[in-house]
Design a protein around this nucleic acid. Sequence first.
DNA 1: AGCACTGGTTACCATTTCCATACTATGTTA
DNA 2: TAACATAGTATGGAAATGGTAACCAGTGCT
Lengths: 142, 142
Amino acid sequence: MEMVTSADNQQIETAKKLKKMFGHIDYKNPPEMCPVRDVLSLASDKWSILIILYLGFFPVLRFNKLKKYVYGISNKVLSERLKALESDGYLTRRMYAEVPIRVEYRLTNFGKNYVDKLIELTEWMQINSPKVLKNKKKFQVK
Amino acid sequence: MEMVTSADNQQIETAKKLKKMFGHIDYKNPPEMCPVRDVLSLASDKWSILIILYLGFFPVLRFNKLKKYVYGISNKVLSERLKALESDGYLTRRMYAEVPIRVEYRLTNFGKNYVDKLIELTEWMQINSPKVLKNKKKFQVK
DNA sequence: AGCACTGGTTACCATTTCCATACTATGTTA
DNA sequence: TAACATAGTATGGAAATGGTAACCAGTGCT
């Protein structure tokens, strides 16, 4: 008698998706464009994830407020990441010619869509991070 | 009359999750441990994602084979990433004292679980990467 | 016997990215 | 007059990253 749990089912689904994604790949002839390498990796680094999540929660944020939430980021890197995320279509930059200048950042619809996906991953990690920390500790002892 | 699409529904769901995740956060007193900063970011960089996805597709891989699939990675970084991913519990390292030495890497159940989540993100990006590329191009013209 | 070869990893140095700090512009406030 | 505010840029040093070469110890070739 076989037991098929929903976890098993998900792994079968995942296997299918992986097959679709990698099944045809010949490592001697890598494709010219790889979505994970060339696109996802530009928006899945630590800082970009945090920026996008905070903009998911607060619809509008200005530079310095964002910097406070994404604590630890430097001006340069924040500025750089914001430019990159804007040019990739995740967020918009709206500048008001006031004094002092005011610049507002907010997610595009595409960015909101990305948050939907990202949040699933971060939520999972929030639940599972204790396991990781426990494992890391166990590993250090060895 | 209001129209509520499933996309709207998902964004409402996301908003709830974000609220749960960030609603209590006071940026003047950041928490000591942040799952995104301290755990996820160690397994969501470009190389780790690729390593984990390939190990999701090929149940067992040895160092050099992995290096061929994750083309472009240096020995040093691959070695380092594998160690980190092992210590965080995503994969196991099995060494055979043969000559030449043989080392096999495979995902743990936890790692397989992570792939399930990761694949949803990469799949989404695979579908949407053309939009990003298009946007990037449009942005350069400006 | 000498020598190249193997696979996984480390050592070394050059390059790139990163962070902290100071600084810019302009007008308002004390 | 000095301090403050905003949204950054400039700078110098620290840290991460990349490429290349070396290492081990046994095996097969000459």
